[in-house]
Design a protein around this nucleic acid. Structure first.
Lengths: 188, 188, 188, 188
DNA sequence: TATGAATGAGGATTCATTCAT
DNA sequence: GATGAATGAATCCTCATTCAT
């Protein structure tokens, strides 16, 4: 299957599943929407579960790269971490299909230890950045994983709430305030 | 259906679904495990979706009550909020089936605006407590929903990570440190 | 599933498969013809393979009982064996569906050692009858299994050929001659 | 398609089907194992059924020639017939794949009258040999087809039983005894 | 009200066959 | 000729739901 077809398959699958859920999206519908026959899909992916797993990895890596793109600079650690948090917020707010898919998948029995492990390398650079911050004493000495979980969890929850409009629409004005607050938490 | 049977039904459903997921848990299995016939289940709940929705509400309310039980005291706002955060951490760490079910449900197409609204009253008291903090200037003036989302998001992410053992097992020692850090974030 | 329905299912399955073969007979057709829904069939039999296996055992036992019914008498060993051979000939000639099914099954990868073993007890009495003949010196001292295989193989081949009409239709006249000939073989 | 490729195709097909059965052996697997592309197979054989039919005829003829090779001699009719029976026994015992394929095919709905007729010429010489025996009064006056069916059926059943090891392993010692016994049957 | 056998629409998957290269 | 990716009809099987007892 050439790249163009594969892309189409992934994109349509993502769209359908984020709208309808895994189990309300039959393979036949994926085939129809993407214009790829079921036979070809099964030629490429052993079964539905594997298709979804591959899609998950692809999207998760794309997300990781988006966040990582903010930590290449020569800025201060504080600026780099705040940029990361900002791009997480952005991704959660804007890339609704991707985030919806990721959260469905991560809370389903489909996810495996194995898959999680395969994605670890992509998180390594984030990890190292926080460790660097700890060494330089610009952030708290709490366990690194804790700092990452707390800050990423805070920002993503915020963004999800924002999108759900439970919280009307004043958010954009306060994003940088909010990220400053989150940074206070990890600064200690 | 008497209360004892209903409880049994809910408990077994929760257990099965948290282990296998919604779509890998047939009604027939629920009937068998709970010792309630399928006829009786359908007599009580129009269909599977409604059964799950009722179970979701029941569990979510139980969770809310657990957290709310911490804000009845005469302690300082800070103490009360820290207790809430602590009980969220506890719940996420210990009540695995409940949390797993909740997260599956909230990330599935089964959840509806309607259901979310029905649960709003239970969050009202949390909301009021944060508002009180803002009035008394002991916490930040950021939007209340933002403060709640950030702090609850930080603690729950932390707890989930802790459980997954990505973060080995030193966590219990640092829970209060971590909660202190989260409080810094909302204190502003 | 009550006995009447089960009988209907077995009979229609037998008929369809002997006409069309295993793999050209979908479960849906079996369901339709027998008037039993697919759900009910799968409620009773885990899968198609198991349904066919059960049918095979049932038919094979019926066949065995038909043959065994001839060796209860007080006649001479020779008479009893000749009667058995006659009833094999009859069965192969008349019960076309049963024989066709049995031969399809025994030459397919569906048959298992296990199934063969389960049917052994039904052949025991035949075995003992031949052993008795050997003890009484009325038949050859060749291995008992060989005597059975040879004589049953001869008669069944004969019957199959007869049915296929390769051999026109004079057979009925000579059945007893033929059985006498077969008996010569085992008499030694 | 050159002869070498065709041979490879037939051999691999035979092997696969004798191990897995017709319907558990996809064309794609045959293509892969034989190293012949599906396109080439379909270029040579209109469809799967025709491929199998051609293979059947090829194997059946090979078997027939093996048996016929025993009746060219100048030996007595008795010796020639016994040699044929011996070679049938040998073939059934040793050429497991071929025999398995033949029996699967002959008991499936794939076999046609037409195919059977095409193979008749190969049996003609066997037929004539038995007729000669009848004329010379060295064997029974039963219908020739009956004599052939009985004797071939007896020997092949014996060999199949022997292979299945139901009958442990003493057989080789007694083959000639057994063939003598079979000859008694046709001698009358 | 409780039961659970019966139903059949719906979905995942397979595989013979085609055809553009 | 040779290739093998692409096709989609056909099949097995599942499971939410019903209803006679």
């Amino acid at each position: 299957m050439n790249e163009e077809r594969l892309d189409r398959l992934f994109n349509e699958t993502l769209k359908l599943i984020s709208e309808q859920g895994f189990y309300s999206t039959p393979m036949s519908q994926i085939a129809k929407k993407s214009g790829i026959s079921m036979g070809s899909i099964y030629n490429q992916f052993e079964n539905k579960e594997i298709l979804l797993n591959e899609l998950y990895k692809k999207i998760k890596i794309r997300f990781a790269n988006h966040v990582l793109s903010k930590i290449n600079g020569t800025e201060s650690i504080e600026q780099q971490i705040k940029h990361m948090l900002g791009s997480i917020f952005y991704y959660y707010s804007e890339q609704r299909s991707e985030i919806n898919f990721i959260e469905q998948y991560e809370n389903s029995p489909l996810i495996t230890e194995e898959t999680q492990k395969q994605l670890q390398p992509y998180l390594m650079r984030v990890f190292q950045k926080f460790e660097e911050g700890k060494r330089k004493k610009v952030i708290s000495q709490l366990p690194t994983e804790a700092l990452i979980a707390m800050s990423f969890g805070a920002v993503s929850s915020l963004a999800k709430m924002y999108v759900k409009k439970i919280y009307s629409s004043r958010m954009p004005d306060t994003i940088s305030d909010v990220i400053d607050a989150v940074y206070l938490m990890i600064k200690g």
